[in-house]
Amino acid sequence: MKADDSSLDPEDLRAVHAAARRALDRASAWGVFPTPTPVILEAASLKIAPKSAFDPSRITEYLIGKAENAAITLKSAIAKVFGIYDASEQLIHIDDGVHKSKQNFLKLHEVGHHELPAHRSAFRLFHDCEKTLDPEISDLFEREANNFARFVLFQGNGYAAMAADHKLELRTPMRLAGKFGASMPLAASSCARITGLVSSTSSSRSLAASAPAPAPRSGGSRHHRPI
C-alpha cells in the first residue's frame, strides 16, 4: 500500500465536507454527472489561467535577461508542480500535460484551497515576505484540499451509493470513474475507502506510515496523491 496523505481528524474532515457541500450547493451540481467541474469553478468565482505558469512562452518571456541559474531553478520548480492556486488573483494554473482524467481532481483540489477560508487567507500572506506556513500546517492544508476534491468529485456519498448497487468487482471503479469524471486510480482508491480498506480519518495514518515510500522521481521527498 502506498502512503495516503488524505487522512484528517474527524472534526477537521467535517469542516472540509461542509465547505465541499457549499460548493456543490452553489453550483447546483448534486446529481449532475460527470460532476461539472467548470460550473463549480465558475460558482466559486475562480478562473483557469488561459496562459498559465506552465506555458513555455510565459516562462521564456520571464527569463529574458535573467541568469542561467534562475532558469534552472524556475524550471526545476515547475517540473515538480502540476497545479497552482493564486489566492490574490482567484486564478488556477493547471499543467496541461496532466492526463485529462486527472485534471478534474487537480482543479477541485485547488478549488478546495479557495473554498476553505483558512487556506485562502493564509496563501495571500506570503508574496512579499520571508515567512511560510509551518510544514505541518502545509501538509494539513494539502490533505484538506484532497478531501475537499474527493468529496466534490464523488458528490459526497453519491459514489458509495452507486458502488453499492454494483457487483464488487474490478470493473466497478472503471465504470464509475467515467460516470463521475474521475481517474481510474482515484475511483479505485475511493472504492477501497468504501469497502473499509483505507479511511479518510486519522486512524489510517499509522498503517499508511508503515508502508515503504516510493522512490522519488527527482530530488526531494515525494507526495503520493491518488489522482
Partner: peptide, 10 residues
Amino acid sequence: GRIATFAEHN
C-alpha cells in the same frame, strides 16, 4: 508552504 500547489515533490 508559501504557495498553494499540487506538487509531486517538495
